[in-house]
């Protein structure tokens, strides 16, 4: 029954972000996209949602996380998210250029839900976002969306 598919994209590349945006739009995927280019900012954003007086009414349904971030790198962000008892409930999909096994292993160890290498061609992006929505929004069940209070 959740029609609003809120995606948090933590990605420093504007062009990559634009591509995702376009893919979502052209893919006719109902969505709401928040883009935060910095890891620390993203964490702050997520943490704020935990407070009772959160300005944003809802937390993301899905986090798309790039590893190659300035400052706090993606894996660190992932670790912090996954160590918070509330935040860890949000599925985190690593979406990054690296295909290095170390990165894959490390992130899964840190609790990543999925690791997806960034598609090379734009059309594949369209497929990807559709798949993501189908899987995470339509197929999988998620804990109910309500103010993130334990």
């Amino acid at each position: 029954m959740q029609s609003d598919f809120h995606i948090l994209l933590i990605e420093d590349s504007r062009t990559d972000a634009k591509i995702i945006e376009r893919a979502l739009r052209e893919g006719n995927v109902e969505h709401r996209l928040t883009v935060i280019p910095d890891g620390q900012q993203a964490l702050d954003y997520l943490t704020r949602l935990n407070q009772p007086d959160a300005p944003e009414p809802d937390a993301p349904d899905l986090v798309l996380l790039d590893l190659n971030l300035p400052g706090l790198d993606g894996c660190e962000v992932l670790t912090r998210i996954k160590s918070d008892p509330i935040l860890r409930m949000i599925p985190v999909v690593i979406l990054t250029t690296s295909q290095r096994e170390e990165d894959v292993r490390e992130t899964y160890q840190a609790g990543a839900n999925t690791y997806i290498p960034k598609p090379a061609e734009y059309p594949r992006y369209r497929d990807l976002v559709r798949t993501l929505r189908q899987y995470w929004h339509e197929t999988a069940l998620r804990p109910t969306r309500k103010p993130l209070q334990s």
């Binding site: 590349s13 062009t15 591509i19 190659n68 690296s98 960034k118 090379a120 061609e121 734009y122 992006y125």
Partner: peptide, 21 residues
């Protein structure tokens, strides 16, 4: 080599995608 090629991918992707756009 890894770092270089890794970092080159992003601009490339932009090139390709936006040429398409």
């Amino acid at each position: 080599t890894y770092v270089v090629s890794h970092d080159l991918q992003e601009p490339l992707r932009t090139l390709i995608a936006f040429s398409d756009f």
